[in-house]
């Protein structure tokens, strides 16, 4: 391949087009998780996939400017902590956590959408971190 980073022009163009769509789809799945199938985990994975796609298409340096390793870790643990605190809030006050009365409404599920968002942040960045660590390991080896 030539000196420029990433893959060919076609891949880059397609990625540029689909990247935003995938992220929006992921966010949609996160936010509607308490009503329809989906939820924090699946949405988080989809959001991460868009970043991985970006990384494959444009080379890792471009992505790293936006989302480096330590920031990923911070987000991941932050998401987990928020999730934990919401769970503990439910422990203290049981009724409000789960007690949504209106079914099938967007705001009818108490704290569950918040949980979903926290989980999606945690899962997304965690998964990206895993992918990233493996990539770095391989690069390190090739460097030697």
């Amino acid at each position: 391949m030539s000196n420029e980073k990433g893959m060919s022009l076609i891949v880059k163009t397609v990625t540029r087009l689909t990247f935003g769509l995938i992220i929006i789809y992921g966010i949609y799945i996160v936010l509607r998780g308490h009503i329809s199938p989906g939820g924090g985990f699946a949405g988080g994975v989809i959001i991460t996939l868009s970043f991985i796609l970006l990384m494959l298409a444009f080379g890792k340096d471009n992505v790293l400017k936006k989302l480096n390793q330590s920031r990923c870790l911070t987000f991941s643990s932050l998401g987990a902590l928020i999730f934990l605190f919401i769970a503990t809030a439910g422990f203290i006050n049981k009724q409000k956590a789960v007690g949504g009365k209106e079914h099938f409404a967007i705001f009818g599920a108490g704290l569950i959408p918040l949980c979903d968002i926290a989980v999606s942040v945690m899962v997304g960045t965690g998964l990206f971190l895993m992918f990233f660590a493996l990539v770095l390991l391989v690069e390190e080896k090739e460097g030697k």
């Binding site: 991941s76 643990s77 932050l78 902590l81 934990l84 503990t88």
Partner: peptide
């Protein structure tokens, strides 16, 4: 269960 989990995430944060 929550205390060690909380400690783990605080440490990594």
């Amino acid at each position: 269960i929550t205390i060690p989990l909380c400690a783990a995430f605080l440490i990594s944060l």
